[in-house]
Design a binder for these strands. Structure first.
Lengths: 209, 209
DNA sequence: GACAGTATGTGACAAATGTAATAAGGTTAC
DNA sequence: GTAACCTTATTACATTTGTCACATACTGTC
Protein backbone atom coordinates (compact mmCIF):
# COMPACT_ATOMS: atom_id res chain seq x y z
CA UNK A 1 0.00 0.00 0.00
CA UNK A 2 1.50 3.27 -1.12
CA UNK A 3 0.85 6.22 1.14
CA UNK A 4 1.50 9.96 1.05
CA UNK A 5 1.46 11.87 4.32
CA UNK A 6 0.92 15.61 4.55
CA UNK A 7 1.10 17.54 7.81
CA UNK A 8 2.12 20.95 8.97
CA UNK A 9 4.28 19.51 11.66
CA UNK A 10 7.40 17.67 10.50
CA UNK A 11 7.48 15.76 13.73
CA UNK A 12 4.04 14.34 13.03
CA UNK A 13 4.82 13.25 9.47
CA UNK A 14 7.95 11.59 10.75
CA UNK A 15 6.17 9.81 13.54
CA UNK A 16 3.40 8.64 11.25
CA UNK A 17 5.89 7.39 8.69
CA UNK A 18 7.69 5.34 11.29
CA UNK A 19 4.51 3.93 12.76
CA UNK A 20 3.00 3.04 9.40
CA UNK A 21 6.13 1.53 7.93
CA UNK A 22 6.26 -0.84 10.87
CA UNK A 23 3.51 -2.61 8.92
CA UNK A 24 5.25 -4.43 6.12
CA UNK A 25 2.30 -3.89 3.75
CA UNK A 26 2.70 -0.11 3.89
CA UNK A 27 5.17 2.22 2.25
CA UNK A 28 5.24 5.96 2.67
CA UNK A 29 6.16 7.17 -0.78
CA UNK A 30 6.13 10.87 0.00
CA UNK A 31 5.56 13.49 2.69
CA UNK A 32 4.60 17.14 2.53
CA UNK A 33 3.77 20.02 4.83
CA UNK A 34 1.01 21.90 3.05
CA UNK A 35 -2.10 21.52 0.92
CA UNK A 36 -0.09 22.60 -2.11
CA UNK A 37 2.36 19.80 -1.49
CA UNK A 38 -0.56 17.42 -1.18
CA UNK A 39 -1.86 18.30 -4.62
CA UNK A 40 1.57 18.01 -6.24
CA UNK A 41 2.46 14.82 -4.44
CA UNK A 42 -0.85 13.25 -5.28
CA UNK A 43 -0.49 14.05 -8.96
CA UNK A 44 3.00 12.62 -9.22
CA UNK A 45 2.78 9.57 -6.95
CA UNK A 46 -0.89 8.61 -7.23
CA UNK A 47 -0.75 6.91 -3.82
CA UNK A 48 -3.30 4.36 -2.68
CA UNK A 49 -4.17 6.65 0.18
CA UNK A 50 -3.43 10.27 1.00
CA UNK A 51 -3.24 10.86 4.72
CA UNK A 52 -3.57 14.55 5.44
CA UNK A 53 -3.96 17.07 8.23
CA UNK A 54 -6.72 19.67 7.91
CA UNK A 55 -5.17 22.76 9.45
CA UNK A 56 -2.18 23.86 7.46
CA UNK A 57 -0.49 27.13 6.67
CA UNK A 58 -1.16 28.04 3.09
CA UNK A 59 -3.70 25.65 1.72
CA UNK A 60 -5.90 23.67 4.10
CA UNK A 61 -6.41 19.96 3.85
CA UNK A 62 -10.00 20.63 2.88
CA UNK A 63 -9.10 22.82 -0.06
CA UNK A 64 -6.50 20.33 -1.17
CA UNK A 65 -9.08 17.57 -0.94
CA UNK A 66 -11.51 19.55 -3.04
CA UNK A 67 -8.86 20.18 -5.65
CA UNK A 68 -7.67 16.61 -5.83
CA UNK A 69 -11.12 15.06 -5.80
CA UNK A 70 -12.41 17.35 -8.49
CA UNK A 71 -9.79 16.02 -10.87
CA UNK A 72 -9.89 12.45 -9.61
CA UNK A 73 -13.14 11.22 -8.06
CA UNK A 74 -11.46 7.98 -7.12
CA UNK A 75 -8.84 9.54 -4.90
CA UNK A 76 -8.80 8.01 -1.44
CA UNK A 77 -8.17 10.70 1.11
CA UNK A 78 -8.12 10.22 4.86
CA UNK A 79 -8.21 13.40 6.88
CA UNK A 80 -6.67 13.76 10.32
CA UNK A 81 -7.71 16.51 12.65
CA UNK A 82 -7.48 17.79 16.17
CA UNK A 83 -10.74 19.70 16.04
CA UNK A 84 -14.32 18.67 15.62
CA UNK A 85 -15.98 21.30 13.51
CA UNK A 86 -19.33 20.36 11.99
CA UNK A 87 -18.68 22.52 8.99
CA UNK A 88 -15.42 20.78 8.24
CA UNK A 89 -16.97 17.38 8.50
CA UNK A 90 -19.85 18.24 6.21
CA UNK A 91 -17.59 19.80 3.64
CA UNK A 92 -15.18 16.93 3.70
CA UNK A 93 -17.98 14.47 3.14
CA UNK A 94 -19.48 16.56 0.36
CA UNK A 95 -16.15 16.67 -1.41
CA UNK A 96 -15.95 12.92 -1.23
CA UNK A 97 -13.25 12.35 1.34
CA UNK A 98 -13.00 8.70 2.41
CA UNK A 99 -12.28 9.13 6.05
CA UNK A 100 -12.05 11.52 8.91
CA UNK A 101 -10.15 10.64 12.05
CA UNK A 102 -9.15 12.43 15.19
CA UNK A 103 -5.41 12.85 15.74
CA UNK A 104 -5.41 10.72 18.82
CA UNK A 105 -5.35 7.03 18.74
CA UNK A 106 -2.48 6.42 16.38
CA UNK A 107 -3.13 2.74 16.81
CA UNK A 108 -6.27 3.00 14.70
CA UNK A 109 -4.71 4.76 11.77
CA UNK A 110 -3.15 1.74 10.12
CA UNK A 111 -6.43 -0.09 10.51
CA UNK A 112 -8.34 2.76 8.96
CA UNK A 113 -5.88 3.10 6.09
CA UNK A 114 -6.44 -0.48 5.11
CA UNK A 115 -10.19 -0.04 5.07
CA UNK A 116 -9.93 3.16 3.06
CA UNK A 117 -7.59 1.52 0.61
CA UNK A 118 -10.30 -1.05 -0.07
CA UNK A 119 -12.74 1.72 -0.87
CA UNK A 120 -14.55 1.83 2.42
CA UNK A 121 -14.98 4.93 4.52
CA UNK A 122 -13.85 5.26 8.10
CA UNK A 123 -14.81 7.82 10.68
CA UNK A 124 -13.54 8.28 14.20
CA UNK A 125 -15.81 7.73 17.19
CA UNK A 126 -16.50 11.41 17.81
CA UNK A 127 -17.22 12.08 14.17
CA UNK A 128 -19.65 9.19 14.05
CA UNK A 129 -21.44 10.60 17.03
CA UNK A 130 -21.96 13.84 15.13
CA UNK A 131 -23.19 12.26 11.93
CA UNK A 132 -26.84 11.75 12.89
CA UNK A 133 -27.23 15.45 13.54
CA UNK A 134 -25.92 16.32 10.13
CA UNK A 135 -28.35 14.16 8.22
CA UNK A 136 -31.53 15.06 6.49
CA UNK A 137 -34.51 13.28 7.91
CA UNK A 138 -36.68 13.06 4.85
CA UNK A 139 -38.29 9.78 5.73
CA UNK A 140 -42.01 9.65 5.34
CA UNK A 141 -42.34 6.92 7.88
CA UNK A 142 -41.13 9.19 10.65
CA UNK A 143 -44.10 11.43 10.07
CA UNK A 144 -46.55 8.67 10.83
CA UNK A 145 -45.29 8.74 14.36
CA UNK A 146 -46.68 12.22 14.77
CA UNK A 147 -50.16 11.10 13.78
CA UNK A 148 -50.18 12.53 10.27
CA UNK A 149 -52.62 10.90 7.85
CA UNK A 150 -51.52 9.68 4.43
CA UNK A 151 -52.55 12.79 2.58
CA UNK A 152 -51.03 14.98 5.23
CA UNK A 153 -47.73 13.21 4.81
CA UNK A 154 -47.90 13.73 1.08
CA UNK A 155 -48.60 17.42 1.52
CA UNK A 156 -45.79 17.76 4.02
CA UNK A 157 -43.39 16.17 1.57
CA UNK A 158 -44.34 18.61 -1.16
CA UNK A 159 -44.04 21.59 1.16
CA UNK A 160 -40.53 20.39 1.92
CA UNK A 161 -39.85 20.41 -1.80
CA UNK A 162 -40.67 24.08 -1.93
CA UNK A 163 -44.06 23.81 -3.63
CA UNK A 164 -46.69 26.53 -3.20
CA UNK A 165 -50.23 25.66 -2.16
CA UNK A 166 -51.41 26.07 -5.71
CA UNK A 167 -48.73 23.73 -7.02
CA UNK A 168 -49.49 21.16 -4.37
CA UNK A 169 -53.17 21.39 -5.25
CA UNK A 170 -52.29 20.82 -8.90
CA UNK A 171 -49.99 17.94 -8.10
CA UNK A 172 -52.49 16.16 -5.89
CA UNK A 173 -55.66 17.13 -7.77
CA UNK A 174 -57.14 19.01 -4.85
CA UNK A 175 -58.49 22.50 -4.43
CA UNK A 176 -56.11 25.07 -3.03
CA UNK A 177 -58.34 25.54 -0.01
CA UNK A 178 -58.13 21.87 0.83
CA UNK A 179 -54.38 22.02 0.71
CA UNK A 180 -54.46 24.95 3.07
CA UNK A 181 -56.64 22.99 5.43
CA UNK A 182 -54.24 20.07 5.38
CA UNK A 183 -51.32 22.29 6.10
CA UNK A 184 -53.20 23.94 8.91
CA UNK A 185 -53.83 20.53 10.42
CA UNK A 186 -50.25 19.42 10.00
CA UNK A 187 -48.92 22.54 11.65
CA UNK A 188 -51.18 22.07 14.60
CA UNK A 189 -50.28 18.43 15.04
CA UNK A 190 -46.58 19.19 14.98
CA UNK A 191 -46.81 22.41 16.94
CA UNK A 192 -45.34 24.46 14.12
CA UNK A 193 -46.22 27.91 12.89
CA UNK A 194 -45.80 28.01 9.13
CA UNK A 195 -44.78 26.03 6.07
CA UNK A 196 -41.16 27.07 6.36
CA UNK A 197 -40.89 25.54 9.79
CA UNK A 198 -42.60 22.48 8.37
CA UNK A 199 -40.01 22.22 5.62
CA UNK A 200 -37.20 22.64 8.12
CA UNK A 201 -38.74 19.99 10.34
CA UNK A 202 -39.18 17.63 7.44
CA UNK A 203 -35.58 18.01 6.39
CA UNK A 204 -33.85 18.08 9.73
CA UNK A 205 -36.28 16.75 12.31
CA UNK A 206 -36.07 20.01 14.22
CA UNK A 207 -39.09 20.84 16.36
CA UNK A 208 -39.90 23.95 18.32
CA UNK A 209 -42.04 24.17 21.44
CA UNK B 1 -12.85 -10.02 19.61
CA UNK B 2 -16.23 -11.53 20.45
CA UNK B 3 -18.76 -11.44 17.65
CA UNK B 4 -22.44 -12.27 17.23
CA UNK B 5 -23.77 -12.88 13.73
CA UNK B 6 -27.44 -12.60 12.81
CA UNK B 7 -28.78 -13.42 9.36
CA UNK B 8 -31.91 -14.81 7.84
CA UNK B 9 -29.96 -17.33 5.84
CA UNK B 10 -28.26 -20.07 7.80
CA UNK B 11 -25.80 -20.55 4.98
CA UNK B 12 -24.63 -16.97 5.32
CA UNK B 13 -24.16 -17.10 9.07
CA UNK B 14 -22.19 -20.30 8.64
CA UNK B 15 -20.00 -18.90 5.91
CA UNK B 16 -19.34 -15.72 7.86
CA UNK B 17 -18.49 -17.67 10.97
CA UNK B 18 -15.96 -19.75 9.09
CA UNK B 19 -14.42 -16.78 7.36
CA UNK B 20 -14.15 -14.71 10.49
CA UNK B 21 -12.82 -17.45 12.72
CA UNK B 22 -9.98 -17.93 10.30
CA UNK B 23 -8.65 -14.80 12.02
CA UNK B 24 -7.30 -15.95 15.32
CA UNK B 25 -8.31 -12.72 17.03
CA UNK B 26 -11.98 -13.33 16.33
CA UNK B 27 -14.51 -15.64 17.97
CA UNK B 28 -18.11 -15.97 16.96
CA UNK B 29 -19.90 -16.37 20.27
CA UNK B 30 -23.38 -16.69 18.90
CA UNK B 31 -25.52 -16.72 15.77
CA UNK B 32 -29.17 -15.99 15.15
CA UNK B 33 -31.65 -15.72 12.30
CA UNK B 34 -33.90 -12.81 13.24
CA UNK B 35 -33.98 -9.40 14.86
CA UNK B 36 -35.52 -10.93 17.96
CA UNK B 37 -32.57 -13.28 18.24
CA UNK B 38 -30.24 -10.32 17.83
CA UNK B 39 -31.73 -8.54 20.80
CA UNK B 40 -31.63 -11.63 22.99
CA UNK B 41 -28.15 -12.62 21.91
CA UNK B 42 -26.83 -9.13 22.44
CA UNK B 43 -28.26 -8.93 25.94
CA UNK B 44 -26.79 -12.24 27.01
CA UNK B 45 -23.40 -12.22 25.29
CA UNK B 46 -22.61 -8.49 25.10
CA UNK B 47 -20.35 -9.09 22.08
CA UNK B 48 -17.72 -6.61 20.95
CA UNK B 49 -19.50 -6.36 17.65
CA UNK B 50 -22.90 -7.43 16.39
CA UNK B 51 -22.86 -8.25 12.69
CA UNK B 52 -26.39 -8.27 11.34
CA UNK B 53 -28.40 -8.47 8.16
CA UNK B 54 -31.10 -5.87 7.57
CA UNK B 55 -33.84 -7.83 5.85
CA UNK B 56 -35.15 -10.51 8.12
CA UNK B 57 -38.46 -12.28 8.64
CA UNK B 58 -39.98 -11.07 11.84
CA UNK B 59 -37.96 -8.18 13.14
CA UNK B 60 -35.67 -6.30 10.77
CA UNK B 61 -32.07 -5.51 11.52
CA UNK B 62 -33.01 -1.88 11.74
CA UNK B 63 -35.64 -2.41 14.39
CA UNK B 64 -33.30 -4.65 16.32
CA UNK B 65 -30.60 -1.97 16.11
CA UNK B 66 -33.00 0.62 17.42
CA UNK B 67 -33.99 -1.59 20.28
CA UNK B 68 -30.46 -2.52 21.24
CA UNK B 69 -29.03 0.96 20.89
CA UNK B 70 -31.78 2.55 22.92
CA UNK B 71 -30.79 0.42 25.89
CA UNK B 72 -27.06 0.52 25.22
CA UNK B 73 -25.68 3.54 23.38
CA UNK B 74 -22.28 1.92 23.28
CA UNK B 75 -23.37 -1.11 21.29
CA UNK B 76 -21.26 -1.64 18.20
CA UNK B 77 -23.48 -2.81 15.39
CA UNK B 78 -22.34 -3.45 11.84
CA UNK B 79 -25.14 -3.89 9.34
CA UNK B 80 -24.87 -5.95 6.20
CA UNK B 81 -27.20 -5.50 3.31
CA UNK B 82 -27.85 -6.36 -0.27
CA UNK B 83 -29.87 -3.25 -1.03
CA UNK B 84 -29.05 0.41 -1.05
CA UNK B 85 -32.04 2.25 0.28
CA UNK B 86 -31.47 5.85 1.34
CA UNK B 87 -34.09 5.57 3.99
CA UNK B 88 -32.43 2.59 5.59
CA UNK B 89 -29.06 4.27 5.62
CA UNK B 90 -30.38 7.43 7.20
CA UNK B 91 -32.30 5.54 9.83
CA UNK B 92 -29.39 3.31 10.65
CA UNK B 93 -27.14 6.31 11.12
CA UNK B 94 -29.72 8.11 13.23
CA UNK B 95 -30.04 5.13 15.50
CA UNK B 96 -26.28 5.08 15.99
CA UNK B 97 -25.19 2.07 14.04
CA UNK B 98 -21.42 1.84 13.65
CA UNK B 99 -21.19 0.51 10.15
CA UNK B 100 -23.06 -0.33 7.03
CA UNK B 101 -21.58 -2.65 4.44
CA UNK B 102 -22.80 -4.26 1.28
CA UNK B 103 -23.01 -8.04 1.29
CA UNK B 104 -20.39 -8.41 -1.34
CA UNK B 105 -16.75 -8.30 -0.67
CA UNK B 106 -16.47 -10.66 2.21
CA UNK B 107 -12.78 -9.88 2.33
CA UNK B 108 -13.50 -6.45 3.77
CA UNK B 109 -15.68 -7.60 6.59
CA UNK B 110 -12.94 -8.69 8.95
CA UNK B 111 -11.16 -5.42 8.32
CA UNK B 112 -14.29 -3.44 9.04
CA UNK B 113 -15.04 -5.42 12.17
CA UNK B 114 -11.69 -4.50 13.62
CA UNK B 115 -12.25 -0.83 12.96
CA UNK B 116 -15.74 -0.94 14.43
CA UNK B 117 -14.47 -2.77 17.47
CA UNK B 118 -12.15 0.18 18.12
CA UNK B 119 -15.09 2.54 18.01
CA UNK B 120 -14.68 3.78 14.49
CA UNK B 121 -17.40 3.67 11.87
CA UNK B 122 -17.07 1.96 8.52
CA UNK B 123 -19.19 2.34 5.43
CA UNK B 124 -19.00 0.48 2.15
CA UNK B 125 -18.04 2.24 -1.05
CA UNK B 126 -21.55 2.61 -2.36
CA UNK B 127 -22.88 3.89 0.93
CA UNK B 128 -20.11 6.46 1.10
CA UNK B 129 -21.05 7.65 -2.34
CA UNK B 130 -24.57 8.28 -1.11
CA UNK B 131 -23.59 10.10 2.04
CA UNK B 132 -23.04 13.56 0.56
CA UNK B 133 -26.58 13.61 -0.77
CA UNK B 134 -27.99 12.83 2.63
CA UNK B 135 -26.25 15.65 4.42
CA UNK B 136 -27.55 19.02 5.39
CA UNK B 137 -25.68 21.77 3.67
CA UNK B 138 -25.88 24.39 6.33
CA UNK B 139 -22.52 25.92 5.63
CA UNK B 140 -22.52 29.66 5.40
CA UNK B 141 -19.44 29.68 3.27
CA UNK B 142 -21.24 27.97 0.42
CA UNK B 143 -23.61 30.88 0.16
CA UNK B 144 -20.79 33.28 -0.56
CA UNK B 145 -20.36 31.53 -3.84
CA UNK B 146 -23.77 32.73 -4.93
CA UNK B 147 -22.84 36.36 -4.34
CA UNK B 148 -24.73 36.82 -1.09
CA UNK B 149 -23.45 39.59 1.15
CA UNK B 150 -22.68 39.05 4.81
CA UNK B 151 -26.04 40.20 6.08
CA UNK B 152 -27.85 38.30 3.40
CA UNK B 153 -26.13 35.12 4.53
CA UNK B 154 -27.15 35.81 8.09
CA UNK B 155 -30.74 36.35 7.07
CA UNK B 156 -30.73 33.19 4.96
CA UNK B 157 -29.47 31.20 7.92
CA UNK B 158 -32.26 32.46 10.13
CA UNK B 159 -34.89 31.76 7.50
CA UNK B 160 -33.59 28.21 7.42
CA UNK B 161 -34.10 28.05 11.17
CA UNK B 162 -37.76 28.78 10.68
CA UNK B 163 -37.73 32.37 11.91
CA UNK B 164 -40.39 34.86 10.78
CA UNK B 165 -39.43 38.23 9.36
CA UNK B 166 -40.31 39.89 12.63
CA UNK B 167 -38.15 37.48 14.60
CA UNK B 168 -35.25 37.92 12.23
CA UNK B 169 -35.62 41.68 12.53
CA UNK B 170 -35.52 41.37 16.31
CA UNK B 171 -32.57 39.02 16.24
CA UNK B 172 -30.52 41.25 13.96
CA UNK B 173 -31.74 44.62 15.22
CA UNK B 174 -33.21 45.62 11.87
CA UNK B 175 -36.61 46.82 10.81
CA UNK B 176 -38.97 44.22 9.45
CA UNK B 177 -39.06 45.99 6.11
CA UNK B 178 -35.32 45.74 5.80
CA UNK B 179 -35.46 42.04 6.43
CA UNK B 180 -38.06 41.72 3.71
CA UNK B 181 -35.80 43.60 1.35
CA UNK B 182 -32.90 41.29 2.14
CA UNK B 183 -34.99 38.25 1.54
CA UNK B 184 -36.28 39.66 -1.69
CA UNK B 185 -32.71 40.19 -2.80
CA UNK B 186 -31.61 36.73 -1.75
CA UNK B 187 -34.48 35.11 -3.59
CA UNK B 188 -33.64 36.98 -6.76
CA UNK B 189 -29.95 36.14 -6.55
CA UNK B 190 -30.70 32.46 -6.08
CA UNK B 191 -33.60 32.34 -8.47
CA UNK B 192 -36.01 31.22 -5.77
CA UNK B 193 -39.60 32.15 -5.12
CA UNK B 194 -40.22 32.23 -1.41
CA UNK B 195 -38.66 31.70 2.01
CA UNK B 196 -39.61 28.05 2.07
CA UNK B 197 -37.61 27.36 -1.06
CA UNK B 198 -34.78 29.32 0.51
CA UNK B 199 -34.90 27.14 3.61
CA UNK B 200 -34.93 24.01 1.49
CA UNK B 201 -32.02 25.29 -0.55
CA UNK B 202 -30.09 26.20 2.55
CA UNK B 203 -30.59 22.78 4.05
CA UNK B 204 -30.16 20.61 1.00
CA UNK B 205 -28.51 22.69 -1.68
CA UNK B 206 -31.48 22.13 -3.96
CA UNK B 207 -32.04 24.81 -6.59
CA UNK B 208 -34.87 25.27 -9.05
CA UNK B 209 -34.67 26.91 -12.41
C1' DG C 1 -77.78 2.77 12.65
C1' DA C 2 -74.67 5.87 15.00
C1' DC C 3 -70.20 7.52 15.51
C1' DA C 4 -65.44 8.52 14.53
C1' DG C 5 -62.20 9.43 11.14
C1' DT C 6 -60.58 10.71 6.67
C1' DA C 7 -61.18 13.22 2.41
C1' DT C 8 -62.85 16.98 0.30
C1' DG C 9 -64.77 21.46 -0.43
C1' DT C 10 -66.25 26.53 0.38
C1' DG C 11 -66.06 31.45 1.89
C1' DA C 12 -64.37 34.99 4.67
C1' DC C 13 -60.81 37.13 7.12
C1' DA C 14 -56.30 38.51 9.32
C1' DA C 15 -51.63 38.19 9.11
C1' DA C 16 -47.37 37.29 6.83
C1' DT C 17 -44.82 37.56 2.85
C1' DG C 18 -42.71 39.35 -1.46
C1' DT C 19 -42.07 43.36 -4.81
C1' DA C 20 -41.05 47.88 -6.30
C1' DA C 21 -39.67 52.43 -5.99
C1' DT C 22 -36.97 55.35 -3.60
C1' DA C 23 -33.53 57.31 -0.45
C1' DA C 24 -29.49 58.19 2.27
C1' DG C 25 -25.11 57.12 4.76
C1' DG C 26 -21.04 54.09 4.61
C1' DT C 27 -16.91 51.62 2.50
C1' DT C 28 -13.94 50.39 -0.93
C1' DA C 29 -11.56 50.60 -5.20
C1' DC C 30 -9.88 52.72 -9.30
C1' DG D 1 -14.05 61.93 -6.54
C1' DT D 2 -16.88 58.97 -8.51
C1' DA D 3 -18.70 54.59 -9.33
C1' DA D 4 -20.06 50.43 -7.20
C1' DC D 5 -21.71 48.19 -3.53
C1' DC D 6 -23.53 47.31 1.22
C1' DT D 7 -26.52 48.66 4.90
C1' DT D 8 -30.49 50.50 6.39
C1' DA D 9 -34.98 52.42 6.00
C1' DT D 10 -39.89 53.77 4.46
C1' DT D 11 -44.25 53.41 1.92
C1' DA D 12 -47.54 51.19 -0.80
C1' DC D 13 -49.39 47.28 -2.99
C1' DA D 14 -50.45 42.44 -4.56
C1' DT D 15 -50.17 37.82 -3.27
C1' DT D 16 -49.74 34.00 -0.35
C1' DT D 17 -50.53 31.90 3.65
C1' DG D 18 -52.89 30.25 7.77
C1' DT D 19 -57.27 30.04 10.52
C1' DC D 20 -62.08 29.23 11.30
C1' DA D 21 -66.46 27.72 10.61
C1' DC D 22 -69.09 24.95 8.18
C1' DA D 23 -70.62 21.39 4.79
C1' DT D 24 -70.72 16.91 2.23
C1' DA D 25 -69.53 12.32 1.50
C1' DC D 26 -67.27 7.98 2.15
C1' DT D 27 -65.20 4.83 4.92
C1' DG D 28 -64.92 1.83 8.76
C1' DT D 29 -66.25 -0.07 13.71
C1' DC D 30 -69.10 -1.01 17.64
Amino acid sequence: MRIVIVDDDVFVTGALKTILEANEDMTVVGTGADGKDAVTLYQSYRPDVLLMDIRMKEMSGLEASKEILSSDQEARILLLTTFLDDEYIVKALKYGVKGYLLKQDYACIAQALRAVCMGQSVFGTEITAKLPGLLNTKSASDLKEYGLSGKEQEVAALVAEGFSNKEIAGEMFLSEGTVRNYISGILEKLGLRDRTQLAVFYLTGKLWE
